[in-house]
């Protein structure tokens, strides 16, 4: 579904991504794990068009989308749940969700109902300002907002960041649930344990390169990964 070939990105004067290639098959959960500064976020930001690549190719459903602007990429069905959630604090929950569907011109009431079914808590807080939600609720809102664009591929940047362990496992349950509903997921995480347990395919990224790949289970059993990311 998504195919990255030899992607190179310069970010802030350094070569943050040094030629990576990977694939995200349809209806799968793929995770990219790695330490801070490995280039994971930059990769996601490049795929959705927020950053222009220096070289390489991004293909989505067989179409070359390298270097296109975010508007056209989002309208093709790719959405990003940004790092740190980045919900709109002065907009109500409902307005936040409507912004998620900004590029759609059809009826969104079905999707709104779907998101509220997925996150009943958001329904309760419909008229509250986004900034007044708790961290976990904000993450739900960020996911809900992304789903409102009716994405084919949802990319998530560190959804567990700064959340309590219980909420984190909750979020991963939601990720699986969303995936079951047919949305392909590309997940980047520092919480390698949770991410690899959830993912069908995992890639390990180090200083701008992919150093390891395999099924989530394989990577969990890999001694290098264990030592470096799982701490066991």
């Amino acid at each position: 579904m998504l195919k990255i070939t030899d992607l190179k990105v310069n970010y802030g004067g350094i070569e943050a991504v040094k030629g990576i290639s990977f694939e995200v098959p349809e209806k799968s959960i793929v995770t990219l794990i790695g330490a801070n500064g490995a280039g994971k976020s930059t990769t996601l930001r490049t795929i959705c068009g927020l950053v222009k690549p220096a070289g390489g190719k991004v293909e989505f459903m067989g179409e070359d989308i390298t270097g296109k602007d975010p508007t056209s990429i989002v309208s093709r069905g790719i959405t990003l749940v940004p790092e740190g959630r980045k919900i709109f604090p002065n907009l109500t929950v409902l307005e936040n969700l409507k912004i998620g569907a900004y590029l759609r011109n059809d009826d969104i009431s079905e999707d709104l109902k779907w998101v509220y079914d997925l996150f009943p808590r958001l329904k309760e807080r419909e008229w509250q300002l986004g900034g007044t939600l708790s961290g976990g609720e904000q993450q739900m809102l960020a996911v809900g907002r992304a789903l409102m664009s009716r994405p084919k591929l949802m990319m998530m940047d560190e959804p567990s960041l700064g959340l309590a362990p219980l909420i984190v496992s909750n979020i991963f349950e939601i990720i699986k649930e969303v995936n079951r509903l047919g949305v392909t997921i590309l997940l980047i995480e520092q919480n390698a344990n949770m991410a690899l347990q959830t993912a069908d395919i995992g890639y390990v990224m180090e200083t701008g390169r992919i150093t390891l790949s395999g099924s989530g289970q394989d990577l969990m059993n890999n001694p290098d990964v264990k030592a470096a990311y799982l701490g066991t």
């Binding site: 927020l50 959405t79 990003l80 002065n90 900004y102």
Partner: peptide, 16 residues
């Protein structure tokens, strides 16, 4: 208002 609150997030939602 979305742009005011967070430009990057607004852009990621496809707002030009």
């Amino acid at each position: 208002k979305a742009i005011r609150d967070d430009e990057i997030a607004a852009e990621a939602m496809g707002i030009n």
